[in-house]
């Protein structure tokens, strides 16, 4: 991160924002606050779209702008931050570090798709952002974790692993409610350089 030496914007008394110490990332907030904010965001998106399937795209777009910031934050905080160049490395970083930082725990699983070489899946049995959301019958295939998929897409693209990332509901045997599967489809150039 670059440090500026001249104060061009701020008044003499306030510190330039990049000179301020970065917090340790331990501060916490009520889950409800996030839930209310997220709920309002979803309603905002719903009001602006014309067709049902656009809701996920709009949520995902909002997540994409968050992604690079999460990446920068986490990389700066890691003690020996070497730039990740291996595919499995970045996936593991997302499954473990990113999930833990955002949601308080690791993702439940990381798998390679058996059907396509360029697809990987990260599952979460209890997606935090969906905790209080019940889908209406006419939107049963919607997964509001499209926002999280957007964040992951933003992280991957920013880390030079361009991919298309989407969120899906997958039924779980014996359980009433489905789990969330984040599907990551890497661009061909990523797969080519990672044999």
């Amino acid at each position: 991160m670059s440090r500026s030496t001249s104060n061009t914007i701020s008044t003499p008394s306030s510190l330039n924002i990049v000179d301020r110490p970065l917090s340790k990332g331990k501060s916490e907030i009520n889950l409800s606050s996030f839930a209310f904010l997220f709920s309002e965001m979803i309603q905002y998106c719903q009001d602006r779209i014309k067709a049902g399937h656009e809701l996920e795209k709009k949520l995902s777009d909002m997540g994409v702008s968050v992604g690079p910031r999460v990446l920068e934050l986490l990389v700066v905080r890691e003690k020996n931050s070497k730039r990740e160049t291996k595919l499995l490395g970045i996936l593991s970083f997302i499954h473990t570090t990113v999930w833990k930082s955002l949601f308080g725990k690791q993702a439940d699983s990381l798998e390679k798709s058996t059907e396509a070489d360029d697809e990987y899946m990260i599952s979460d049995n209890n997606m935090l952002v969906n905790k209080f959301i019940s889908l209406p019958k006419n939107l049963s295939s919607l997964n509001c974790a499209a926002f999280v998929a957007g964040i992951i897409e933003g992280i991957l693209c920013s880390a030079e692993f361009p991919a298309r990332v989407t969120a899906h509901n997958v039924a779980v045997e014996g359980k009433k409610f489905s789990k969330t599967v984040i599907l990551i489809k890497f661009n061909p150039e990523v797969i080519e350089r990672n044999p």
Binding site: G25, E28, I29, N30, L31, S32, F34, M41, M62
Partner: peptide
């Protein structure tokens, strides 16, 4: 109350405002 990392909240709000 159940809590989460405030950064997810802050970044989400930022995404909303920029949108």
């Amino acid at each position: 109350v159940e809590k989460i990392n405030s950064e997810l909240f802050t970044l989400t709000y930022g995404a909303l405002v920029t949108q």
